[in-house]
Simulated assay, not measured.
Amino acid sequence: MIRFDKYESVTAFQKEVSSFLEQDEAANNLLLGVLQSLVEQDTTPLFMAAVWKNHDIGLVLLQTQPKQIILSKPTALSSQDIQELGEKLVQTVQPILGLIGEKKLTTELARYVSQDQGTRANVHMEQIIYKLEKVKNTLQTNGKLRRVIASDHPVIKEWVYQFCQETNQPLSLEDASSKATFLINKGNLVAWEVNGELVSMATATRPTRHNITISYVYTPSNQRKKGYASDCVSDYTQRLLNSGYQTTSLYADQSNPTSNYVYRQIGYEPIMDSIVIQFQ
């Protein structure tokens, strides 16, 4: 038997669930980061809830956009608990268009949601969440890391467009241009530069109490297999650790053996399988 609590105040929600989420900051980096941003901007999301079992939180749910609900890393919930959650969720959020979270629970929950709302569940993306505490490898190329600036926009716009195409999150060139501007202005976008040419990029996002997440790691196809992405991520990761973060985390496409190999060589260790499921 579970208790399903829905919240209306984002500050009250954060106060209630933060200690649970911070038990595993890296695995919960998406939910923690989004929640912190909501609090800072004083914005109320579409949906916030916590699942309680035996007087303890077992799962946290957050929805900021119609297309998906973010699920935290869960504690032990039985199949009966998950089925009950599916029923309560369908009664509360209509329609449910997608879920993102730990693979096993999210897949099982999606099955019950599909049955209850009469939709078909499709796997949109499977990823691995990685966590790093210490950089292991040394730099391999003669490049250098530098912050991306406004004059780099034409290059970054194209890279953002290609990155989103390759990660199955397509967007228009106009939107890619806007996203590139946003990333540059935020100040966390860096690039690996070799002989005056940018060859790879990465950014840092969703800072939490002890962790920050690496994202938008991209190397154009003509510069791959040269060690540039490895050096870019490795050097940037070390700088983030030097700035005070205890850990860094990142998502990697489960079907991409190259990126998974590169991240493990740097020192990233897999901590959770994540899945995105969409309903049709």
Rank of each mutant, 00 (worst) to 15 (best):
Q91P: 03
K134Y: 06
Y245H: 09
V10I: 15
Q117R: 10
T237E: 07
P74S: 12
S259D: 04
V51A: 09
Y263N: 15
L77T: 11
I184A: 02
T203G: 14
K73L: 14
V190Q: 06
P270D: 00
G33M: 11
I277A: 02
P257L: 13
D5H: 09
L77Y: 08
Q280H: 12
L145A: 09
G118V: 07
Y130A: 02
W52G: 06
P154C: 12
N122R: 05
V34F: 09
M125Q: 13
Q140K: 15
I69C: 14
S114A: 12
L71P: 10
G86L: 07
L240V: 05
S249Q: 03
W159M: 07
L97P: 07
P170W: 07
N28P: 02
P270G: 09
I266M: 05
A191H: 07
L139W: 05
C164E: 14
Y218D: 08
K73Q: 13
T208W: 05
P207E: 01
K144H: 13
Q254G: 09
E22P: 04
A121Q: 04
Q65E: 04
G33S: 05
S255T: 11
A50D: 09
R209M: 03
P95R: 01
S78E: 09
I128W: 01
E158Y: 06
S274A: 11
V10G: 12
T107M: 08
Q165W: 14
Q91Y: 00
Q115G: 11
Q94A: 06
L189V: 11
Q127K: 13
L21A: 03
Q117S: 03
I214S: 02
